[in-house]
Design a protein around this nucleic acid. Structure first.
Length: 316
DNA sequence: AAGACGAAAGTGGTTGA
DNA sequence: TCAACAACTTTCGTCTT
């Protein structure tokens, strides 16, 4: 879903596109990215939604749901609802706490933290969620996605899927899963780079989690990769539209089935970039889409032969 | 010199007996 | 459980710009 005039995010200080200098942006809430409406450059992909996590449809609901304190979150092991005793030796008014009471406060603090993270399960959860958060910020994924990933991880724990598997593996799998569910696909390779676990392990855990939790996830489509690759190659909006169009055509002709989605996306972008005279080398496209030049070439050949696109071929 | 092309051999995952 | 298989990768030599 694409929404114009993003609120309250940049009303007062609009972002300016570094590429074409335009001020008008489009917020793609679905992907959590701000995209320049003129040239398609992704300006930022780190949007934090500062609104409440609930919606109220009438004043009664608003009454019920309004509460004091930080919003509930799945990314903290106790959902952010517990009390934390500050480590500063100040009282509520900011005065120093007398030395006499210090040791008492110190003991209270210790007990509080013992209670907060009481058993092994909670300790694991704490660790897993911080790991989840670390990976998500390495990959600059939006907060909503972290919540989803945390939710998946929690249900995995609940269904006793962790036993015998590594916490990091399941956490990475949950993240990968969330990416696919929210249509912000990252490749397994990208997740593996951010995680401390290898690709194989994440894949195994992913399949296991999906199977056991009955998560329906349709395979990723080339279209979902296009906007990201386009902006990484700093290509124009026209190219993006054309590439999307080509992918649609390719899908219709059955050129996508069995093929890696990244490869198809890469070749479509390659074709589109040539058509608009913004040619990028196969090597560059291969790099951002994480396939080899050979794959780009093979998909490219299939596209031009099956879709009879009139490409101004330089050579014969 | 860089980019494009294609052949050949190797890899990891799926499928069907 | 194993072999066959398609897609993809790696590597490398040749041709084009």
């Amino acid at each position: 879903m694409v929404v114009k005039n993003p609120n309250p995010y940049n009303e007062n200080s609009p972002e300016i596109c570094g590429d074409c200098g335009s001020i008008l942006n489009v917020l793609d809430q679905h992907r959590g990215e701000v995209i320049c409406s003129i040239c398609g450059l992704v300006i930022t992909s780190k949007i934090v939604d500062q609104g409440p996590e609930w919606r109220a449809f009438d004043s009664e609901q608003r009454e019920k749901r309004t509460r004091v304190g930080a919003p509930m979150t799945f990314t903290i092991h106790d959902r952010g609802l517990s009390t934390i005793i500050d480590w500063k030796n100040r009282d509520f008014a900011g005065h120093e706490i007398p030395a006499k009471l210090r040791s008492q406060i110190y003991r209270l603090r210790r007990w509080q933290s013992r209670i907060r993270v009481s058993d092994a399960t909670e300790r694991n959860l704490t660790f897993a969620l911080s790991e989840l958060d670390r990976m998500a910020s390495v990959l600059t994924l939006p907060k909503s996605l972290r919540e989803t990933a945390a939710k998946i991880y929690r249900s995995a724990v609940k269904s006793h899927l962790i036993r015998g598997r590594s916490i990091e593996g399941i956490a990475a799998a949950a993240l990968y899963c969330a990416c696919r569910m929210l249509k912000i696909p990252r490749t397994l390779q990208e997740i593996a780079d951010a995680a401390r676990v290898d690709k194989k392990e994440i894949g195994r855990s992913y399949r296991f989690v999906v199977f056991r939790l009955n998560l329906s996830s349709n395979p990723t489509k080339p279209i979902d990769y296009i906007s990201r690759f386009i902006s990484e190659l700093s290509l124009s909006n026209n190219v993006q539209k054309k590439a999307t169009e080509i992918v649609r055509l390719a899908e219709k002709k059955g050129l996508t089935s069995g093929r890696g989605p990244t490869g198809v996306a890469a070749a479509s972008i390659y074709v589109a970039s040539i058509l608009f005279g913004e040619r990028r080398t196969q090597r560059d496209i291969a790099r951002v889409s994480q396939v080899t030049e050979v794959t780009v070439r093979n998909r490219f050949k299939e596209l031009i032969s099956k879709l009879d696109l009139d490409i101004p071929l330089k050579r014969k």
